[in-house]
């Protein structure tokens, strides 16, 4: 098992490193950072001043290695856009994104698990089709559109939630629903399939013959077994939420890592974008790794 985890960790770090190189060179190729920082109507002198100040007049390779070696000294760099250490930006913004990610996964669970159970208990029925319809719709609707529709309904027409911001728990409700909705189909379908498989298993027949039936049978015997693969998918979905928060946080003006990523890309804040891409990748890969470990733990064949 340890060998398996070590192998996966090497893959995670290699992907992270490759991503950092690709991001750095792409950003510098596509954007003139000095112009982006200075703005559209900046004077020539201002742009040149910024170019010299941040060392953009040096070669990309030199700058990349400088940045990379800094990481090993614990220096993640200074944000050009915010004029403060990138590490402090991450620390400031992470709580909002973690809250949003956890709440949105909770929304996914609250919607997809009951839907999956209902669909599995009534296969090929109207309920099954409605559940499938909800799931497909949730996946098909883009985040930014769903966000604005939720604002229109629950903040303007029926003003029970705030339009934007992140000061209270209520500010996170609508964005969590928006972000959580996109994961509903994957989890719901897995729940449905898993439960269908378990319901037809021998041990459920045995339980039934012992007098268990209805919801008691589902909750006490079937669900526990059907949930195992769902848990590993939820781990992956949690990783997805960090990267997926970019649009949702911007629409709802939540001051988290996703919005920071968007601001940094638009402002050509290369040190911040570099670290964020790296962090998002590591988070995503970490949760994938967690899912792999869970799967490997449950199914020893995967460890071979």
């Amino acid at each position: 098992m340890l060998r398996f985890i070590a192998g996966r960790l090497i893959v995670v770090l290699s992907v992270g490193l490759t991503l950092s190189i690709v991001t750095f060179f792409l950003l510098n190729y596509v954007i003139d950072p000095a112009q982006a920082i200075a703005g559209e109507d900046a004077l020539f002198e201002e742009i040149e001043q910024i170019r010299e100040q941040y060392g953009f007049d040096r070669s990309i390779t030199v700058r990349y290695f400088e940045w990379f070696s800094g990481i090993f000294k614990g220096d993640l760099g200074i944000s050009y856009y915010w004029n403060k250490p990138v590490i402090s930006l991450l620390i400031d913004r992470a709580p909002e994104t973690i809250t949003l990610a956890l709440m949105s996964v909770s929304v996914t669970i609250l919607i997809s698990i009951p839907l999956g159970i209902l669909a599995a208990l009534n296969p090929n029925s109207l309920i099954d089709r409605i559940a499938l319809g909800i799931a497909v719709t949730a996946q098909a609707v883009p985040n930014f559109w769903l966000g604005l529709i939720m604002i229109l309904i629950f903040a303007l027409a029926i003003p029970i939630f705030p339009v934007s911001g992140d000061k209270t728990f209520f500010h996170f409700v609508l964005p969590s629903i928006v972000l959580g909705a996109s994961s509903v189909p994957a989890v719901m379908r897995l729940m449905r399939t898993g439960l269908l498989d378990v319901i037809n298993a021998d041990f459920i027949r045995t339980a039934r013959s012992s007098g268990f039936y209805g919801w008691r049978l589902v909750f006490n015997h079937a669900l526990r077994n059907a949930l195992l693969p769902v848990v590993s998918v939820l781990a992956v979905q949690l990783g997805n939420k960090f990267g997926g928060s970019v649009i949702t946080e911007s629409v709802f003006a939540i001051n988290g890592l996703g919005r920071l990523a968007l601001e940094s890309i638009l402002g050509a804040d290369i040190p911040t974008v570099q670290i964020l891409v790296f962090v998002f990748a590591i988070i995503f890969l970490f949760f994938n790794l967690l899912a792999d470990i869970l799967n490997a733990y449950l199914d020893p064949r995967l460890r071979l």
Partner: peptide, 18 residues
């Protein structure tokens, strides 16, 4: 002065009195 990146959200805030 609030920073609200999305213009659609700004419109919604204006309509709601935010």
């Amino acid at each position: 002065i609030r920073s609200i990146p999305d213009m659609g959200t700004q419109q919604a805030e204006l309509m709601s009195g935010g």
